[in-house]
C-alpha cells in the first residue's frame, strides 16, 4: 500500500493546480453545508436536503482526483492506467477507502458538534440531534464506497 501512497503523493504534486481547485470547491460546499447543519434536525427539511447534497458534493471533490485523470478530453480511471503495474485492485481500493474514512470521520465529528451547538442554541436538544450526524456520516461513507467502486473501471 506504501507504493500506492507514494504514487498518490506524486500525483498530487504533479496535479497541484487541479487539487487546489477541487479543494476550493470542497471548502465552499463544506462551509455552506456546515452553516445549514447548524439548524437543528427537524427544523427545516429544505436545509437538511441541501446540506446532504452539499456534503455529497464535497466528498466527490475530495475523492475524485484520486480516482480519475483526463486524457484527450476523456475521463479515464486511474486504476485502469495502473492495471499493468505491480499493484493490486485490493491495495488501490484500500488506500482510497482510507482517504474516504478520514474524510467521513472528520466530517462526522464536526457535524456532531455543529448539531449539538445548533440544538442547544435553539433549545430543542433531543436524541435525534446526537444520532442524525452519525447516521448521516455512515450513509456518506456507504455512498462514497459505492462511488469509488463505480469509478474503478469506467
Amino acid at each position: 500500500m506504501e507504493a500506492v501512497r507514494k504514487f498518490d503523493a506524486e500525483w498530487k504534486k504533479q496535479n497541484a493546480w487541479e487539487f487546489l481547485m477541487r479543494r476550493v470547491c470542497l471548502v465552499l460546499f463544506y462551509s455552506i453545508g456546515s452553516c445549514l447543519m447548524l439548524l437543528p434536525f427537524g427544523s427545516s427539511a429544505w436545509a437538511l436536503v441541501s446540506s446532504v447534497m452539499l456534503f455529497l458534493g464535497a466528498m466527490h471533490f475530495y475523492i475524485a482526483p484520486y480516482m480519475r485523470c483526463v486524457e484527450n478530453g476523456k475521463s479515464v480511471s486511474l486504476y485502469v492506467k495502473l492495471k499493468w503495474m505491480p499493484v493490486s485492485k485490493r491495495e488501490f481500493l484500500a488506500v482510497r477507502r482510507g482517504y474516504l474514512r478520514k474524510f467521513c470521520v472528520g466530517t462526522g465529528v464536526f457535524l456532531w458538534i455543529l448539531q449539538q451547538i445548533g440544538a442547544c442554541l435553539a433549545r430543542t436538544w433531543g436524541a435525534e440531534n446526537a444520532l442524525f450526524p452519525l447516521a448521516f456520516t455512515a450513509a456518506l461513507y456507504l455512498v462514497g464506497i459505492f462511488d469509488i467502486n463505480r469509478k474503478l473501471f469506467q
Partner: peptide
C-alpha cells in the same frame, strides 16, 4: 509483475506527461 516488462502500443502510461514525469509517478511500484 516486478520483473515483467510489457511493451505494446496500448497507452497504459500517462499520455499528458513526459517520460520523466511518468517515471516519477510509477517508479514507486518497483
Amino acid at each position: 509483475m516486478q520483473e515483467i516488462g510489457f511493451i505494446s502500443q496500448e497507452q497504459k502510461f500517462f499520455k499528458n506527461y513526459t517520460p520523466m514525469q511518468n517515471v516519477d509517478l510509477l517508479k514507486g511500484f518497483y
